[in-house]
Structures are given as structure tokens and as C-alpha cells.
Design a protein around this nucleic acid. Structure first.
Length: 852
RNA sequence: GCCGGAGUGGCGAAAUUGGUAUACGCACCAGACUCAAAAUCUGGCGUUCGCAAGGACAUGUCGGUUCGAGUCCGACCUCCGGCACCA
């Protein structure tokens, strides 16, 4: 054993050892209970950044902890290797995307190994390899069979800078999620996956994961699905057979409807106006609204003005029989509900604003429930109350001016009026969702081709399963024109119809890369299966994922798609549960100071505040880098990079190492059994050290369950400090002292393994243990009896302020404590001349003397 | 605007059910070792009054509940994140 701690040497040695012994490979025939620990698979950009390091350090800590506890831990890694950057590199530099990607993977794999992350490398997968994307295509065909994959011409989000289609999730806020360019709308034939069929489940099943996923992720998912309970109501158009269907969550306010407002894109706009003298004006307005919308996103902060135009058409309120005007309004969205709303200015802020601008009547039909008021307000109030209302009253209350419904509560009205509408055939209770179907078509080369063929005779024909995969060609022209590069590859496009064998053309779009990542962790279970995406029986042994770790940037996209995909796989009979991930941890960002400023921002090349993991490893060692990353902040917080912080981590490892070195020889020579009662002598330092050891084990084990990794490291440092304070010379230590030191050091080293595994393995060996720590199932057990304090220091307060402390045994009675407190000299001095009103004794905790 | 989350030393942060606020680390200061520096080790380190013993004040602000509040309640301020006409 070297006297000095040389991380490079130790890390190389153990990495080689792990590699040679295939230390982290797991099998399904292992009798131990399983644990599936998963980190989000990276895009192979070529270089690991500190965010990756943090992600994998957290995951590896969990994996090691569970292994040491005796679990059979599946801890795999792979590559989300389809996607834009490879294609950009091809366009800009003419490189082959496949070569570029493989080189990046090779480099990043090396970096991961230098970090010593305990992956089962035999299960490594990469999305761009045909043996993987074959199954993307297979799933696509299964969806196609069931009508869950369909093609439609639709306005899509188009990124002009990258010449591609984006999903709704990827164009949130009107800008491209990747390059920030403003998104345009285009009409294109696109493939969609029917995630909307699962909208209800995606909300409902949140119940199953509520306590184990971060609230902020669940909130964003709920918002994204946007479930809304309400009702449809049909308003008949006067002098026409047409009806306008509106969606409302407040059918109780329907007697207050003073207009119908429809979206500029509403299909009835043309038809309704056929004979109207206002036709040209209204259509011109509708066009203007559409172009304004296309331009939106440019000005983010400026709320758009509400604008509208009266079409001159009248619609009939089916409840009151009243005729009200139909307007086209820019604030009504075609994408949501029915693209038409009933305008109730008195009880909706937007309608109120609109009504004020265009002087539409504002009619109050809900009154606040007043507790002083004995009787329910009746309809005697005046008709037009616009003057009396400074803004809309959006609360629930009691219905007024609502015909026979007056006097009912809003909540009753909402239910009963929807029923009434259904009975009379002009509406019904309904639930709407904001979520849209998932557009997966990309006009890109570097992705999984859509396995569909177009035949003149047979039309759209799915590629038969036996012909999968539809292989990407080796190369294509990257024109950057916007059309899929595959369209220019004749060998690819031209094929024969699987049905009639006539010449046919392939679909030239590729799939969104989020398809690849929606099911990849099932593939890890059975990664080399050539006959299926995975064997359900094998997947059942590992899934669901017990702990998933990644950034919260995937709170809606990846994490909602993968939930959807799982439910689909369940419906195929491949899995038997609803939710793929039991526990989710979203780690915080890694930031660094931007040079010359006081700002902390995510590390990036453009800001010049990046830190290269390889340099960190070279300078301080992987163990110290990992220890620092886990210690410096709670896992979900932002992590501020600090060079001196990482130096502190090296110092700690060095001290522990030196301590092991000092005791190494003596530990080897002395029996491990506890030969006498000596360390149990209450007052001895040895007893105190044992107590600290067992207290630390209890704390660390508890904190691991909640992933409070930073406080675990603090606790390990405390244990080490106690060990240092136990200043016994190894040469002259008694057998009992050697025993407690061994116990403390062994516990410390074992519990350090999830943070700094190489150093821990090395020290474990020097503590006299043959064979590795790994899979030893030796996570230390806390002995509650040994952890218990024999002597308590009880704070004594006078009127809630700390004035003194007394020592007491844990068994001390309340009476004894009270007496001890009142006998205390300092306390006597404080209460002298005052009347003791009462004495509060909290057993084992504190005494508070209350005086007047 | 709406919905979340958070405000504790110079900094990152600790603190079971309300019960010794500031654990652990970083930075800083002093001392030891050294010709010297680095490294290492030892000690100190919320603010303030005091030679000291000790006291007063401190968890964003103001109030409340309580013997006792970082923790609970009410109002407000600030910061971060998400959504943004969702009927």
C-alpha cells in the first residue's frame, strides 16, 4: 500500500479490474431481488459535460448503494444517436453522419469509463443501429394497424432555420426548442400518433406516481394534457339549418350569453356568410387574424388586443330562446374545444374585455352567496348591469335572471343544465383536452424511416414485418432544402409494392427521435433480441424502472411520450403495468460563473464557462470529482461549480486514505472479534466512536432512501472527524480499540463506495478484505442500541431562551429533569425574584421554565 | 396575469412530529512545521456590546398562534421556474 493517495493509479487499477471481471454485468437468473436504476440516455454530441457527470454520479451512487444492499442491479447505458447535430455536421462539413456518430460514441464511452460509472456495458444500445430502429418501425406498424398512427394534412410547426417540422412540445411558445428560431405554420402531409386516445389515462394515472415523481413535473404534465370538464351546447343559427357548437366550463352562466364568438379559422365562417352583405368585410378580418397569429411569438410580453367583427348572423340560445349575434373574434382558438365560445361578459374576463370594447350587453346571472342574506336573490335586479360591474365575476354563486334555473347554485346548474341539454338534444356534459396528437414526421435523413410504401394501385401499404428494418441508405445529398434528403436517394425511394409487387415509392420521412427514447429502457432488458423488441418475460423481471434520473428539461416531452408508449405496449400485451417509472429524480443544472461577471449560468461553450470532465479527472481524479458533485448541493438544486470545492473533496479522500494506511498494519495483525467489554464502557472514547459509527450508518441509510446525497457526505465527514479525534496510536492500541477503529473504518469505506468507488475498493482491500466490495451485500447495519446516547445534554430555557444545559440519562423522568433544571445555578440566577408560573418538560429534549 | 417553488453566515448549505438555529464543506484569519513558499496539522470564524464572565440581536418584511416558531396561520416584498387569450 502506498503511503500517499494517488487517484490516477487507483482508478486505473480498479477500472481495469471491473472491465476484466465484467463486474457490473447482470443476469436474469440471479436469485436476488432486482433493482432497475436508469439515467436518461445521452445524445452522443462527442463530449460529456458536467451535467452528464452529475446525472451519472447520482445514478451510480444509487446503483452502488442498492448493490451493496444485496440487490441485483440493472444499470445500463446507451445512445440517443439519431438527430439533428449529426445531420448538421453532414451538411456543414460533409462528414458521414454514421461515422461522426460512432466516433462520438467511442469517445464518450471512454469518458464514462474514466469516470468509473458502473454500467453493464454488455447491454449498450444505440438508436441509429438497424437492430434498434427496426423496432421503432415495428411499433409504428403496430400503431398503424390499430389506427393509432395516421397521416393527415395539417398545419405544422415549421422551423425555418432547421427546415423541419416540430411537435407542439418542441415549438412551445412559438419558438423552436432547439435553435430558438420563430416557428412558422405550414400545411404538410404528416404522420401523427394518437396520444390523445390516452389523454384521460395520462392524467388519471398520475395518481399512481404522485408521491414519487417531483410535483413540478406532474404539474407540467397535467397542464400539458389540459383536461377540462364542461359541456357542449349547440346554438341553432337563425334562418339556417346550421348549428354552432360551443364548449363551456360554465354552462350555468348561459343565460348571460350575449354573443357567440367563433374563431377566424372556424369552418362555418364561409358558409354562414354566403349571403351576408358583410361577407367581404368579415372574411378580410378573418384573414388578418390568421396572419397576425402567424406572426405571433415575435413580441412575447405584449398581450394581443382583442378584436372582432359582427357577422350579422344570429344564433339562438337553446335555454332562453333568445337570439344573439355571432362574432368572429381573434381570441377564440380553433385548436381548443370547438373553436367557438358563448360570450358571457359578466362572468368571464376575456368576454368582459371584448364586450366593453364593442359595447355588447353585460348581463349578470350569478350572484355571490351572501351569508347575511336569508333569502336567495331573485330576478328583480335590472337587466343591464354593465355599469355596476367593474370587472367580470368569475366565482361560483347563485343563479339569477336564468329563467326556471334562478335560485340554484352554480355547482348544481353546471351538472343539471348539461343533463337538460342532453335530454333535449342540444348538448351534453363533455371533457376536452389541450393535448394534440404527436406529430412524428421529420423531413430528415438521420432518423428511423417511416415503414410505409405508396403504390399507385394499393395506395398506402405498410411494410411487412418480415421486411424490417427499412434501412437507411449509407448516404444522401444534404441540400438543406427542406425536403427530406431521403427523397433524393433513388435506391431508397424506388421499391415494389408489398401487396401487388408493382413499382412503388417509400415514405421519405423519418421519425421524431423521441420515438427512439420512448421505449429504450425496455430494450436494455433484452438488448440483443433479433426476433422482438424485447421478450416480455425478461422485461417483466426488470421493469418498471425503480429509479429514473435526468434533467427536468424532459418534464413534458420525453416523459409524457414514454408514459404514452408504455400504455400502448400494455395494450399490445407486452407489459402488464400502466406506468414505466416508479421513482423519478430531476437533477438541477450545473452552473459556473461567467468570467468577469457575477452571473452563474449553465456551462456552455459560447459563454466560455464550461469545465471539461477529462481535465477534472486528470487534475483531481474521478472519485473526487464525483464526491464533490454529490456533496456540494442537494441533487435537485442548481450546482455551482467550484474548483476549491473539488479540492476539498480530494483533501477528504486523502485524509481517509491516510487513516487507513496508518491502521493498515495493525488491523492485519489483530483479531477482529471484540474481546472484552471495554468499548462498552460508557465514558470511553471507544464507546463514543462506536456510537457515532452506528448513528452515521442509520443516518446515511435513511438519507439514501430520500436521495439526500449531500447530507450523507456530510455525515461521513463527521464520522471521519470523530475517528480522527479518537487519537489512539495504532502501535499501542488495545484489541478493543482496534476493534472499534476497524468497525468505524469499514463502515466509512463501505458507505463511501457509492460516491468514490475506486478509492473505496482500494481502501476496502487495505482493511484486510480479500475480493471486491461489489455485490458483497455488505451494507453496514445500524445497531440501534449502540447508536443510542447514554447521556443527554438537556437545554434549559427560561421563557423560551436558552440559559443553561444539564446532563441527564435517557431514562430520566420528567420530575427529575424539572428538579435538575430548577437546581441549576444559572437558572436560579435567572429566576430569582420572579414567580415560576410553570415548567414545561419535553422528555429527553428540553426544559422551559416560565416565569413572570 | 395565472400556477408552482424558494428566501437561513462572505459562499454552497444543515436543522425528525414546533423544542439547543447555522451541522458538513468552501473561503477567510491566527498559530505550528519551513530559510521561505506550497502542502499538511492545530485553533478561530453570524452581528453586536464587553478585558472577561456574560448579555442583546439575528432564518426576506410586518403581524398572529404558542411556554417555545426557520418550521404553523395571515398580509406583503423579492428571486427562480412553468404556462400564457385553453372558454
Amino acid at each position: 500500500m502506498d503511503e500517499k493517495y494517488f487517484p490516477e493509479q487507483i482508478e486505473n487499477k480498479w477500472q481495469q479490474h471491473w472491465e476484466q471481471t465484467k463486474a457490473f454485468q447482470v443476469t436474469e437468473d440471479d436469485p436476488r431481488p432486482k433493482f432497475y436504476c436508469l439515467e436518461m440516455l445521452p445524445y452522443p454530441s462527442g463530449f460529456l459535460h458536467m451535467g452528464h457527470v452529475r446525472n451519472y454520479a447520482i445514478g451510480d451512487a444509487v446503483a452502488w448503494y442498492k448493490r451493496l444492499q444485496g440487490f441485483n442491479v440493472l444499470h445500463p447505458i446507451g445512445w440517443d444517436s439519431f438527430g439533428q447535430p449529426a445531420e448538421q455536421a453532414a451538411i456543414k462539413r460533409g462528414v458521414n453522419p454514421r461515422d461522426w456518430t460512432e466516433e462520438n460514441i467511442a469517445h464518450m464511452r471512454g469518458q464514462m469509463k474514466r469516470l468509473g460509472i458502473s454500467y453493464d456495458w454488455s447491454r449498450e444500445i444505440a438508436a441509429h443501429r438497424p437492430e434498434y430502429y427496426k423496432w421503432d418501425q415495428w411499433f409504428f406498424l403496430k400503431m398503424f394497424e390499430r389506427g393509432l398512427a395516421y397521416k393527415k394534412k395539417s398545419p405544422v410547426n415549421w422551423c425555418p432555420k432547421e427546415s423541419t417540422v416540430l411537435s407542439n412540445e418542441q415549438s412551445s411558445g412559438g419558438v423552436c426548442w432547439r435553435c430558438g428560431a420563430e416557428v412558422e405554420k405550414r400545411e404538410l402531409e404528416q404522420w401523427f400518433l394518437k396520444i390523445t386516445d390516452y389523454a384521460e389515462e395520462l392524467v388519471e394515472d398520475i395518481k399512481q406516481i404522485e408521491s414519487s415523481w417531483p410535483e413540478k413535473v406532474l404539474k407540467r404534465q397535467r397542464d400539458w394534457v389540459g383536461r377540462s370538464e364542461g359541456a357542449f351546447v349547440d346554438f341553432a343559427v337563425r334562418d339556417s339549418s346550421q348549428k354552432i357548437r360551443v364548449f363551456t366550463t360554465r354552462i350555468d352562466t348561459i343565460y348571460g350569453a350575449t354573443a357567440i364568438a367563433i374563431s377566424a379559422e372556424h369552418p362555418l365562417v364561409d358558409e354562414l356568410l354566403a349571403e351576408s352583405p358583410l361577407k367581404n368585410q368579415v372574411l378580410a378580418f378573418a384573414e388578418k387574424v390568421k396572419s397576425d397569429k402567424a406572426a405571433r411569438g415575435r413580441i412575447v410580453d405584449e398581450e394581443e388586443q382583442k378584436e372582432g367583427i359582427n357577422t350579422g348572423v344570429l344564433a339562438v340560445n337553446p335555454f332562453s330562446g333568445e337570439s344573439i349575434p355571432v362574432w368572429v373574434a381573434n381570441y377564440v382558438l380553433i385548436e381548443y374545444g370547438t373553436g367557438a365560445v358563448m360570450s358571457v361578459p359578466a362572468h368571464d374576463e376575456r368576454d368582459f374585455e371584448f364586450a366593453q370594447k364593442y359595447s355588447l350587453p353585460i348581463r349578470r346571472v350569478i350572484e355571490r352567496i351572501s351569508h347575511e342574506q336569508e333569502s336567495i336573490p331573485h330576478d328583480a335586479t335590472s337587466e343591464d348591469q354593465s355599469i355596476a360591474m367593474p370587472h367580470a365575476f368569475t366565482e361560483y354563486g347563485i343563479l339569477v335572471n336564468s329563467g326556471d334555473w334562478s335560485g340554484k347554485l352554480s355547482t348544481e346548474g353546471i351538472v343539471e343544465m348539461a343533463k337538460y341539454a342532453e335530454v333535449h338534444g342540444f348538448g351534453k356534459a363533455a371533457v376536452t383536452y389541450r393535448i394534440r396528437d404527436w406529430g412524428v414526421s421529420r423531413q430528415r435523413f438521420w432518423g428511423a424511416p417511416v415503414p410505409i410504401v405508396y403504390c399507385e394501385k394499393c395506395g398506402m401499404v405498410p411494410v411487412p414485418e418480415k421486411d424490417l428494418p427499412v434501412q437507411l441508405p449509407d448516404r444522401a445529398e444534404f441540400t438543406g432544402s427542406g425536403e427530406s434528403p431521403l427523397a433524393g436517394v433513388a435506391d431508397f425511394v424506388n421499391t415494389t409494392c408489398p401487396n401487388c409487387h408493382a413499382p412503388a415509392r417509400r415514405d421519405t420521412d423519418t421519425m421524431d427521435t423521441f420515438v427512439d427514447s420512448s421505449w429504450y429502457f425496455f430494450r436494455y432488458c433484452d438488448p440483443r433480441n433479433e426476433a422482438a423488441a424485447f421478450d416480455p418475460a425478461i422485461a417483466r423481471q426488470w421493469t418498471p424502472v425503480d429509479q429514473y434520473i435526468g434533467g427536468d428539461s424532459h418534464a413534458v416531452m420525453h416523459l409524457i411520450y414514454t408514459r404514452f408508449w408504455t400504455k400502448f405496449m400494455r395494450d399490445l400485451g407486452l407489459v402488464s403495468f400502466d406506468e414505466p417509472v416508479k421513482k423519478l429524480l430531476t437533477q438541477g443544472m450545473v452552473t459556473n460563473r461567467v468570467q468577469g461577471t457575477d452571473e452563474w449560468k449553465a456551462m456552455s461553450k459560447s459563454l466560455g464557462n464550461g469545465v471539461d470532465p477529462d481535465e477534472m479527472i486528470a487534475a483531481f481524479g474521478a472519485d473526487a470529482a464525483r464526491l464533490f458533485v454529490l456533496f456540494a448541493a442537494p441533487v435537485e438544486n442548481e450546482l455551482r461549480w467550484s474548483e476549491s470545492g473539488i479540492e476539498g473533496a480530494v483533501r477528504f479522500l486523502r485524509r481517509v486514505y491516510t487513516m487507513v494506511w496508518r491502521w493498515n498494519e495493525r488491523l492485519a495483525k489483530t483479531e477482529t472479534t471484540l474481546a472484552s467489554d471495554e468499548p462498552n464502557d460508557q465514558s470511553s472514547g471507544a464507546r463514543a466512536l462506536r456510537r457515532k459509527t452506528h448513528q452515521t450508518i442509520a443516518k446515511v441509510t435513511g438519507d439514501f432512501e430520500d436521495l439526500h446525497l449531500n447530507t450523507i457526505v456530510a455525515a461521513l465527514m463527521e464520522l471521519f472527524n470523530e475517528l480522527s479525534a479518537f487519537a489512539v496510536d495504532p502501535a499501542t492500541a488495545t484489541a478493543a480499540e482496534v476493534f472499534v477503529v476497524r468497525e468505524a473504518l469499514a463502515a466509512l469505506v463501505l458507505m463511501l463506495a457509492p460516491f468514490s468507488p475506486h478509492a473505496a475498493e482500494e481502501m476496502w482491500q487495505h482493511l484486510g478484505h480479500a475480493g471486491g466490495l461489489l455485490n458483497s451485500g455488505r451494507w453496514p447495519q445500524a445497531d440501534a442500541e449502540l447508536a443510542r446516547s447514554e447521556e443527554l445534554e438537556i437545554p434549559i430555557q427560561v421563557n423560551g431562551k436558552l440559559r443553561s444545559r444539564v446532563l441527564a440519562l435517557p431514562e430520566v423522568t420528567e420530575e427529575e429533569l424539572r428538579a435538575a433544571a430548577l437546581k441549576d445555578e444559572k437558572i436560579i440566577a435567572f429566576i430569582e425574584g420572579h414567580e415560576v408560573v410553570k415548567v414545561i418538560v419535553v422528555p429527553q429534549r428540553l426544559v422551559n421554565v416560565v416565569v413572570k
